[in-house]
Design a protein around this nucleic acid. Sequence first.
DNA 1: TCGAACGTTCACATGGATGTGAAGGTCAAC
DNA 2: GTTGACCTTCACATCCATGTGAACGTTCGA
Lengths: 134, 134
Amino acid sequence: MDVKVNTAGCDMGHMRIGELAERTGTARRLLRYYEEQGLIAACRAANGYREYDERMVDRVLQIRGLLDAGLPTRIIKQILPCLDSPRVIHFSDATPEMIATLEVERDRMTQRILCLTRNRDAIAAYLEEVRGDG
Amino acid sequence: MDVKVNTAGCDMGHMRIGELAERTGTARRLLRYYEEQGLIAACRAANGYREYDERMVDRVLQIRGLLDAGLPTRIIKQILPCLDSPRVIHFSDATPEMIATLEVERDRMTQRILCLTRNRDAIAAYLEEVRGDG
DNA sequence: TCGAACGTTCACATGGATGTGAAGGTCAAC
DNA sequence: GTTGACCTTCACATCCATGTGAACGTTCGA
């Protein structure tokens, strides 16, 4: 039985950090930083180079989205496992503290969405007015 | 004709920084910081104390919301004038660069809203699953 | 009139996400 | 076998929102 995939994303693709950086629009430096923070993992080739598989692209994009949404890495680290697909695997992670964290974060995100929406709509309305009779 | 309100929020209320801090849940230090960054203004009493009127409470809350939504102060500073009510006063500010900035920012906010919504929904879905058969 | 609670400015510290550069190893191509 | 593009680690720099504290003036009530 041959190994195909593991959480580090080894053994399948042979994407190195440069390609991942390019495909995600993320500086190499940051990919290493995310790894250091435990958000992503990479296994190493014989020469020490990091190797990633395809799935990492989406994962990095998701991380960037969450960072951009204002979540700190330590929170992202906590919630990422729950967002993985297939999701079924990860039920074991669902400790009560974890669930509490998720609920808090979900509500914070909802608040943020409301605030952002409100303000964006205000900006949009302003722009329409200006375009109208500016 | 007596002066009632100006952009600095003078002459009406006699709220000082401590009360504003308490009512907005914002550290005094930060209120001074926002002033330093040009997000809010205050006029001074004879003794040098900052004075604010009621409107500042909402304004500060709005600023905090935007900060929390991930906008940096320098952007907030640009978009705040457009969000003031009554809005009509501010048409003079509508330079082309300003409009461009606003359009960019509006679109960025829309992106953020989408990303946030997607991730929040994923979290919510996970929570539902866990609550269901965890 | 004294002290507590508030205000002021100045200035340095911190933490998180990044930028940047040095010093060096690996590898493919010419 | 040397060049150039890639990788490695290490480490210091930057930006921004905050924390914190010193040193000092003001207000107010006991």
